[in-house]
Amino acid sequence: MIKLDQVSKSYNQDIPILKNISFSIQEGEMVFVTGHSGAGKTSLLKLIGVVEKPTSGAIFIKGQNITNINSDALPFLRRNFGLIFQDLKLLMDRDVFDNVALPLFISGFPRAQIPRRVRAALDKVGLLRKERSLPITLSGGEQQRLSIARAIINRPAILLADEPTANLDDAYEADILEILKDFNRVGVTVIIATHNIKMVKNMQLQNISLKNGELLK
């Protein structure tokens, strides 16, 4: 499903963020990417999510080398991913419903079916009653769940979550992880970047561990 072959990334040529990373993730797996702050977790997720291009090496998604993808095909490739950003990237001037509906408008989803699909996603994350609320009025946990609903609305093949439980208390953390596990159970490949080692140990899932941009295991 996802294969990285000797992938490196540097923004400044002298300081590599990721060095010769190689690993594979099978379809339907749930994987953690761990490491301390600055280890390269977010950069790795950006490379897999076709947000940024590797400086060297190759990344294969469903057998396709995405590193040299042409600009016309890029938006359609990106629609295979559901992205949960560390900073959430919620649109504060749009209500909950419109935030979740945006990916459907972008992908040209049939208009008549959008409300039903959005409400189903909001129901899944427990925000159905707040569909007309603005994100600013939601709690941290609710905002996190809103970003999950938006990430999964297009039923992506791969869900990339960057620190999805950061700044949340234990109850919210378990809640969010349970939602992500639910998607994994229906076949979505889930990759979660976290610095929360305790959570990884509890889950007993495959762990890609990074240290100073290098793969530990």
């Binding site: 938006p75 359609f76 990106r78 991913f81 649109l91 945006l102 990916p103 972008i106």
Partner: peptide
């Protein structure tokens, strides 16, 4: 920027 990242042309 967000729209671009999630596949907007």
């Amino acid at each position: 920027e967000f729209s671009k990242l999630i596949g907007a042309t």
